[in-house]
Simulated assay, not measured.
Amino acid sequence: MLSVPAPARPVPVASTHPGWAEAADLTMLRTRLTATVSMRRAGDLGAPVLTPSDAVVLRFPFGRCRIALKADTDWRHCGEAAAGFVFASAPNDVVRTEWVNDGEELILTVPTSYWQGRISDRMLAILSRKKPCRHGDAMLQQLVKLLMQSAHEDIQSAFARPLVQAIVERLIVAGADDRIRRAPARHPQALASYRMAHVIRYVREHLAEPVTLENMAHAAGISPMHFAAQFRAATGKRPHHYLLEERVARAMELMRHTSWTLCQIALATGFGTQAHFCTVFKRYAGMTPREWRISVAVHVA
């Protein structure tokens, strides 16, 4: 059995949504392998979970869910997962799940030191691809089920401890045998034109205010995770980039047709400060607002 250094305390990997059944934690203090079993309900958009900087987090869902990774200020849709799938998040990844139907998930936190010298190139690819994978291993699935059942029955951790380790070991074996397959790629459908019209109208009516991804998704009438993927499929842009383009376009209109100061224009277009306005404007227009205003005035004259 591989010996892994012991930490001061285990790293928590998940928490249940308020009002739900409490998650069952099964922790291997000596190896720092931590297991959490949580009940999920259809329609739940789980709270974002940060993967520890010195670990990999493995998710085994029982129930259909969609998984997303945070990229800067946006969420990137990684794909759908269900029973028989595993999703691995790398250190410092921020992950959240949206559940299509009621289910449960087992989340294992595995220290990066556990993999050293024991992992195949194939398994390394699985851990780095950031897509749900169908593992196709009946023994691995049975081990996962048994661990989840032991959590519900409040069985002592002495029984759960070898199960946690067996799951990780089996995953290593399955990866070495090249039996884990990537989930079929699914191209998100484009946002419907009527939903897009609602989003455009909402954004243009609220440019002077803070506008979030959730606001735009609500205007479209769908979940934030679905909205981000469908909006990009329809426009080729991330929602945040589209919002900035609209703010810059409105600023150009105000500079062309009013004598407002740059500070007034920045506030009227939702940038908050003149400095932020100037930075974003130059990124999109290729010149500062003052330079752009002068060039337009000279051209008109």
Rank of each mutant, 00 (worst) to 15 (best):
245 E>K: 03
245 E>F: 01
245 E>T: 05
245 E>V: 04
245 E>G: 06
246 E>V: 10
247 R>S: 02
247 R>G: 00
247 R>C: 00
247 R>I: 01
248 V>Y: 00
248 V>N: 00
249 A>Q: 03
249 A>K: 04
249 A>G: 02
249 A>D: 01
250 R>C: 05
250 R>Y: 08
250 R>M: 10
250 R>S: 06
251 A>E: 00
252 M>C: 11
252 M>P: 00
252 M>V: 07
253 E>F: 15
253 E>Y: 15
253 E>K: 09
253 E>P: 01
254 L>M: 04
255 M>E: 04
255 M>Q: 09
255 M>T: 08
255 M>H: 07
255 M>Y: 08
255 M>N: 04
256 R>F: 02
256 R>D: 03
256 R>E: 04
256 R>S: 03
258 T>Q: 12
258 T>V: 14
258 T>Y: 10
258 T>E: 14
258 T>K: 14
259 S>Q: 13
259 S>Y: 12
259 S>D: 11
259 S>L: 15
259 S>P: 06
260 W>I: 09
260 W>F: 15
260 W>L: 15
260 W>C: 13
261 T>K: 08
261 T>C: 06
262 L>M: 13
262 L>D: 06
262 L>T: 07
262 L>V: 08
262 L>Y: 10
262 L>I: 09
262 L>H: 08
263 C>L: 12
263 C>K: 13
263 C>H: 10
263 C>G: 09
263 C>R: 14
263 C>Q: 11
263 C>V: 11
263 C>D: 09
264 Q>H: 11
264 Q>S: 14
264 Q>P: 05
264 Q>A: 14
264 Q>F: 09
265 I>L: 12
265 I>G: 02
265 I>S: 03
265 I>K: 04
265 I>A: 05
265 I>M: 09
265 I>R: 03
266 A>D: 01
266 A>V: 06
266 A>E: 01
266 A>W: 00
266 A>K: 01
266 A>I: 03
267 L>N: 07
267 L>K: 12
268 A>L: 03
268 A>M: 04
269 T>C: 15
270 G>S: 05
271 F>V: 04
271 F>I: 06
271 F>M: 05
271 F>R: 02
272 G>D: 05
272 G>M: 05
273 T>H: 15
273 T>R: 15
273 T>W: 15
273 T>V: 12
273 T>S: 15
274 Q>I: 11
274 Q>K: 14
275 A>W: 10
276 H>M: 12
276 H>A: 14
276 H>S: 13
278 C>M: 12
278 C>W: 05
278 C>N: 09
279 T>N: 07
279 T>Q: 09
279 T>I: 12
279 T>P: 01
280 V>A: 05
280 V>F: 02
281 F>A: 02
281 F>V: 00
282 K>V: 07
282 K>E: 12
282 K>M: 10
282 K>P: 02
282 K>H: 12
283 R>A: 10
283 R>Y: 07
283 R>W: 05
283 R>P: 02
284 Y>V: 10
284 Y>R: 07
284 Y>G: 04
284 Y>T: 07
284 Y>D: 05
285 A>P: 04
285 A>R: 08
285 A>C: 14
285 A>D: 08
286 G>I: 05
286 G>Y: 07
286 G>H: 06
286 G>T: 06
286 G>P: 02
287 M>E: 12
287 M>S: 10
